[in-house]
Structure formats: C-alpha cells, structure tokens
Design a protein around this nucleic acid. Sequence first.
DNA 1: ATGATTTCTTGATTCAAATCAAGGTCTTTG
DNA 2: CAAAGACCTTGATTTGAATCAAGAAATCAT
Lengths: 193, 193
Amino acid sequence: MDYSLLLSEFRRVVEFPDKEFLKLTPLIERIRVKKNEHLLKAGDISRKVYFVEEGCLRQYLINTNGEERNIYFKVECGWCSELESFLNNTPTELSIQALEDSQLLAINEKNWIYAVTHIPPFTMYFIRAQQQTNYMLKKRLGEATIETPEEKYIRFLQEEPQLLLRLPLFQIAAYLGITPETISRVRKKIGSK
Amino acid sequence: MDYSLLLSEFRRVVEFPDKEFLKLTPLIERIRVKKNEHLLKAGDISRKVYFVEEGCLRQYLINTNGEERNIYFKVECGWCSELESFLNNTPTELSIQALEDSQLLAINEKNWIYAVTHIPPFTMYFIRAQQQTNYMLKKRLGEATIETPEEKYIRFLQEEPQLLLRLPLFQIAAYLGITPETISRVRKKIGSK
DNA sequence: ATGATTTCTTGATTCAAATCAAGGTCTTTG
DNA sequence: CAAAGACCTTGATTTGAATCAAGAAATCAT
C-alpha cells in the first residue's frame, strides 16, 4: 500500500517522522466511490474522515426548496469530513458527495480519536489544517454578502482556476451563490472563460 | 487571580484536571479594552488569542468601499483570534474590535504553542472548539446566499436572541449581510422586536 | 456517427432588496 | 435640562440579479 500522497501532504505542513507515520497507516482504509455517490447525507451521522487521493468531493447545504449551495470542493490532497457530527454523534445538515469517480483514504471515528491523541504530528497537522479551513471560511462568509457576482467570479478565477476546468458551471454557481446565467453574463462582460 | 470562568468553559467540553490547568494559568494575562478599541486590524499580524470574560468582540471584514461584514460576535466564554495569521506570521484580512468595554484573557504566540503541545486537555479542547466554529461557519456560509433577509433575521432571533439586546441594529445587519432598513421592514412584517 | 441528454448562452421580464431621503426616537453629555 | 449625536423607522425610487424561456453547443451513450 502506498500512502505517499498523504505523507507528502502532512510534510507540507508539519514535520512528520516515518516512525509516527507507520503508527497511522494501519488505521486507514482506501475506498473508491463513483461520480454522484454520497458519502454523507443531511440527517446522517458522519462516521469517517476522508482524504482525497484522486477525484473531487463537494460538501453542500440543501434547503427545503431543494436549492443547493456548495460550501467547498475538495480535490487531490484535500480533507473532507463533518467532524462536528462525527464527534458529537449528531446528525449533520451538510452533505458530502463525489463529483467525479474518486479514490479516497478514510479514517473511522475510533481510529481518528486514537490518532489525534497518540500521534502528536498528526494532532499538530490537524490543528493547522483546521485553522486554514477556518480562516478560508471566515473570509468567504464575509465575501459572500459583500461582493458582487462579478467580483466573486473574478476572485474564483484568480484563486481556484483549476476547478473551472473540472467542474460544470452550475456547480461553480452553487459555490459562489449566484445563478449560472449571471456567470455567463459576467464572462461575456469581462471577455473571459 | 480567578480563572474559574475559563476553567468552566474547558470543562463544558472536555475533562480538564486541576493539575493541568495550573500549568496553563501562568501563560495567561488579563487585559481590559474600551469600547471600539481594536485588538487586530486588517494588515496586522495577530499575536494573541483572546478569551472573553466580560464584554463583546466582533471579527469583521472590510472592503475597499469601507463596507463591513461581521463574521461573528463573541461574548462571555467565547474565543476570538486569528490563528491563521498568528501561526504563519502573515497579515490578516479580518479585524477584531471590542463593541463594549471588555475584560479578556490573552495568550501570546509562544505560550499558546507551548500549551497546545504540552497540555493535552487544552489541545483536545482546542480541537473541539475549532470544530464547532468550523461547522457553524460552513452552515452560515451556505445560508448566507440561500436564505432571504426574513429567514436570516428569524434564524438570528431563534439562535442568538441575546445578541439582539446588546448590539445596535446596524451591527446585526452587517452580520446578516442585509441593510438595517430591510431588518426594520422584516420586523414590522413579522410583528416582532 | 447519431441521437439523446446535459450544459451553456442569450434575451425579455419581474421582483426583492438596496439606495436615497426625511423624520422620529432614544441616548449621551456638557 | 437642553442640545447633539446616534440609532431606528418609514416611504419613494432605482437597480441588479433572479426568473422565465428558448435555442445553441457540447458531451455522452449506443
């Protein structure tokens, strides 16, 4: 079994000795999911933390009208989970779905708790990664209601251009909180794909 | 020095033996800030993590037009910080300001890193608290662009009614991402304060 | 390849919330 | 207490994005 992608992601952020990593790998399973398959649905209790080796996941909110908003997309080297549900054993309101056929690493609840309490570099990696997510979410929350559709799309082009190439427009629209029609018009206006 | 509020907050979430807590208290300082004073301004590098003993802080985003959006308010027993800036030594885009005269506990960078690497219950508390914030932010990010002003205000009344009593309306408006005029009209419509 | 389905663009129209404006209420403070 | 300033409400108007609708382009499956 090759876990080099995971290890390199850890080492991007913290020091992670081989010895500690060997304690972690037995706690991991590798799974494959098909495009459109759900890993977590609103109302379910989350049982696993996922690391994307290949493919793309989205976490999203759906309202009573069936309208959806994507919270984020996670591609290679991204983590996707709903720890709040996982740790408190409560149903989540946020769903997780594969947008491409994907290969994932998964850690279950018991193993995750073991890792975070017994493998210090994992703990520190986790705190740092959480923190980055946190800051990103705070910024995006502010931007969500202060920026115009044009500003949102231009920011997206600058910050996450690679997603444009692999996702359909309506998914990006549901991420930016605007309609596909509006994006189409912004594109025309700014003369950009 | 009395740190009972902090200790009770820890114990709300995790087990926290007195022995461990005594390792933490020497790392803390108590500070007072006046209403409207800034603890962190966009462009600054964050140096401390704050725990609110009394008063109210807000973290907010400001754009080039001077428009503001409040990310959240933190009152008694809340934590307010920008760890991302703090840990990476990079300027933050999110400011922190006192909205009332406030009494805070503060932990500086060196001490925070010591605590999170040497005081396990602090580490676990921190991970759990981060996680809660994370989930709250994800949900609010989805809601920010899917809910109507009326839905936002009603949710606010249900979830955080105590804030209504201590904050001016325009701060709440900047939190919900709508104008004070719109809130006024929603109030009239739903016949509620 | 070809038809079927999905996705994207463009145009016309509607509508909800922002903006602009003014007056009223509440709070602070000298 | 009076005056100033801050805050909130209400009304009139504007406007930007959503919605509705249709057709074009791209992708997928057989």
